[in-house]
Design a protein around this nucleic acid. Structure first.
Lengths: 114, 114
DNA sequence: TTGCAATATATAAGAAGCTTATATATAAAA
DNA sequence: TTTTATATATAAGCTTCTTATATATTGCAA
């Protein structure tokens, strides 16, 4: 299991990317899918997820639609056109960040002091 | 340039890994090296770096030695044996996290809904 | 010789992001 | 009947980082 501190900052990007790939999802399904895709390594907490979803909604990146399923309310989150653009930018940023991290944690031998 | 939020949680790991690769460094040199290795993408702020260095020192992960260079004090940070172990664990964790992120942001086609 | 950029360390105030604890409610399985 | 899974949500608090500020030396350019 990955310790809490390292996940900071990537939650928004993860959620947006999932909605782009999978289409509209409700909160509970998002946590399950992230757990599945990460092989159990990343476990989202609801205390982190719902505030993020509400914030993204207030920013116009997501819209919600309610649905009743087995007497349980499901709130589906769907990307807006603005959201589609935001995802692309967030993914670009994360990819760049990962590349930078890899330059540091997995430096090419022979460049600095080999 | 990478926005602030995404870097959260990885600063400690970056610093420790640098000290492992480069040997003892002072704070200013750490910021320069990170900028260089990341191609200018990651810029550490001193307000973030020094508190982290001090905390790692108080945890016994680093020790400091002062040196005078051109009438400027340089405080070199060196990994302790405990630090060597912590780096290995941190890098393992970060690698695992990056792999999980990539499963999400770069999903294999043909597995879920292709 | 004055001023600016680079070098070098450091702290305080505050914002942002997350964890933990808590609350509510239904359905299915044990 | 009690636990597990499903489903959403908020509050309190911690950690991490940003921004602003402070101090001081060296070297270069104007």
């Amino acid at each position: 299991m990955i310790s809490g501190e390292i996940i900071k900052g990537s939650l928004k990007t993860i959620v947006l990317k999932l909605l782009k790939e999978e289409g509209p999802m409700h909160g509970y399904a998002i946590t399950r899918k992230v757990e599945e895709l990460s092989g159990g390594n990343i476990k989202l907490t609801y205390g982190a997820l719902y505030p993020v979803l509400h914030k993204l909604e207030s920013e116009g990146v997501l819209v919600t639609t309610s649905e009743n399923f087995n007497n349980r309310t499901r709130i589906y989150y769907t990307l807006t056109p603005k959201g589609d653009k935001v995802v692309i930018e967030k993914i670009r940023e994360m990819t760049e960040f990962i590349e930078s991290l890899q330059s540091i944690i997995n430096p090419k031998p022979g460049l600095s002091h080999a």
